[in-house]
Simulated assay, not measured.
Amino acid sequence: MTFSLKPHVTATATEHGTVLLDQRRGRYFQLNTTGGLILRTLLDNGSPEQVATMLTEHYGITLQQARGDITRLLNALTAARLVTT
C-alpha cells in the first residue's frame, strides 16, 4: 500500500504529536504522539502491519487493538481528504 499526504497538506512534528495543515481549506488537524508515530512510519513506506507490530511492542497492546487504531486513523485522514492510499 502506498501512503502519502495530499499535495496541499503539510505535516509538522510538535512536542505533543503532529499537526497537519490543509492549505487549500485553511484547516489544522492535531494528531497525538501515537497518531504522529503511525503517520510518520506510513509516510516512510512502513506497512500497516509493521506499524501494528511496532505499536504492540512499544505500548503493550494487542495486535488486534493496534490494527483497529491504525484503521480508524487512516479512515479519519482519508475522510478529511488529507491522504491518499
Rank of each mutant, 00 (worst) to 15 (best):
M1K: 12
M1W: 06
M1H: 12
F3G: 02
S4C: 07
L5K: 04
K6R: 15
P7Y: 01
V9K: 00
V9A: 10
V9F: 05
V9Y: 00
T10A: 15
A11Q: 06
A11L: 06
A11Y: 00
T12S: 14
T12W: 10
A13R: 11
A13L: 10
A13C: 01
T14V: 13
E15A: 14
E15F: 09
H16N: 10
G17F: 03
G17K: 01
V19M: 14
V19T: 11
V19I: 14
V19W: 07
V19D: 15
L21D: 07
L21W: 06
D22G: 09
Q23S: 15
Q23P: 04
R25G: 06
R25S: 15
G26I: 12
R27L: 12
R27Q: 12
Y28D: 08
Y28L: 11
Y28K: 10
F29H: 15
Q30T: 11
Q30N: 05
Q30M: 08
L31G: 01
L31N: 02
N32C: 08
N32V: 01
N32E: 07
T34S: 10
T34V: 09
T34Q: 12
G35M: 01
G35Q: 07
L37I: 10
I38Q: 00
I38V: 15
L39D: 00
T41M: 14
T41R: 13
L43A: 04
L43Y: 02
L43T: 02
L43G: 05
D44T: 10
D44E: 12
D44I: 00
D44N: 12
D44K: 10
N45H: 13
G46I: 00
G46S: 02
G46D: 02
S47D: 09
S47V: 10
E49P: 03
E49L: 13
Q50R: 09
Q50V: 04
Q50G: 12
A52N: 07
A52V: 04
T53H: 13
T53L: 13
M54P: 03
M54I: 09
L55Q: 01
L55N: 01
T56G: 06
T56M: 07
T56F: 11
H58R: 07
H58S: 04
H58V: 05
Y59N: 06
G60M: 03
I61A: 02
T62D: 15
T62L: 14
L63P: 05
L63H: 12
Q64D: 15
Q64P: 02
Q64F: 06
Q64T: 06
Q64M: 09
Q65I: 07
A66D: 08
A66G: 11
R67S: 07
G68E: 15
G68C: 05
D69C: 06
D69S: 11
D69F: 11
T71W: 14
R72H: 13
R72D: 09
L74E: 14
L74P: 02
N75L: 12
N75F: 14
N75Y: 13
N75V: 11
N75K: 06
A76I: 09
L77W: 00
L77T: 05
T78I: 08
T78N: 14
A79V: 06
A79W: 06
A80I: 11
A80R: 08
R81Q: 15
R81G: 07
R81F: 10
L82M: 08
L82K: 03
V83D: 00
V83T: 02
T84N: 08
